[in-house]
């Protein structure tokens, strides 16, 4: 229900994540442009955050702490001569190599996919579809491509320039058909803003008119609830 051009009645349920998809989308769109509703939402979000304190208390088994500490206790590092040459014993160097490796893997994955498309193109004269994605006003420097495989049911999303999110949030891809959003998967990006995920659809991608990416709680949402950061028409 809209009250004086605001969405005040729906904000409590939005904070709980219990709005149906259409309402959640409408509220998300309104919030992007309404500081008053954003402030109201923050107040209800604080209520929602505190609700965990009202659960019946159950003590974890004592052995659980030992299991946790065994998982996190640092082990003495054993580095090969190759790792020492690469500076692997330094955390920063490991991060750089990890980012470089991730980027290389993504490039190789896309290259392989494109090679595979090329092979199929030559074999079946079927062209792959490569859709360019653009960042929104929140992410003007972000870019991406969505490559749809020759079978029409599988594809790969590659994004660049998105900000890494905190641990409680992930990006979520949405496939949009007649206004309905179907999740295409959740993903995170590297420190340099690079990310890629394979996308498999239960129906051919040509039934969808567009794709969008939003910020959602880690693990994803049933429908979009966060800010849209990228999109493109199929």
């Amino acid at each position: 229900m809209t009250t004086d051009n605001h969405e005040l009645d729906l904000l409590p349920a939005y904070a709980l994540g219990s709005l149906d998809e259409a309402d959640a989308q409408r509220v998300a769109g309104h919030l992007a442009a309404c500081p008053h509703c954003r402030a109201e939402l923050l107040a209800f979000q604080q209520v929602s955050d505190e609700l965990a304190l009202a659960v019946p208390q159950v003590a974890p088994p004592p052995v659980l702490k030992k299991k946790l500490m065994d998982r996190v206790r640092p082990r003495p590092a054993q580095f090969s001569w190759v790792q020492r040459v690469l500076g692997w014993q330094r955390p920063r160097a490991r991060q750089v190599w990890a980012s470089a490796s991730l980027a290389l893997i993504a490039i190789l994955a896309v290259s392989n996919l494109l090679l595979w498309f090329r092979f199929n193109e030559l074999k079946n004269q079927t062209l792959p579809q490569v859709v360019a994605l653009q960042g929104t006003h929140l992410t003007p420097g972000a870019t991406g491509v969505f490559v749809i495989g020759a079978d029409g049911y599988s594809g790969t999303l590659v994004v660049n320039g998105l900000s890494p999110l905190d641990e409680t949030h992930q990006y979520q891809l949405w496939l949009i058909q007649d206004g309905r959003r179907t999740s295409g998967g959740v993903f995170s990006v590297s420190e340099k803003g690079y990310g890629t995920i394979p996308v498999v659809s239960g129906q051919p991608f040509d039934v969808y008119q567009a794709v969008g990416i939003t910020i959602e709680p880690a693990g994803g949402s049933p429908g979009p609830t966060g800010d849209k950061v990228m999109g493109g028409d199929l």
Binding site: V55, P60, K65
Partner: peptide, 21 residues
């Protein structure tokens, strides 16, 4: 890890209770 151990002692009951509920 000792710092994590203390935080675990402080909040594991709450976290476990949410999961169990």
């Amino acid at each position: 890890s000792e710092a994590l151990s203390v935080l675990y002692d402080r909040y594991s009951r709450l976290v476990y209770s949410v999961a169990m509920t």
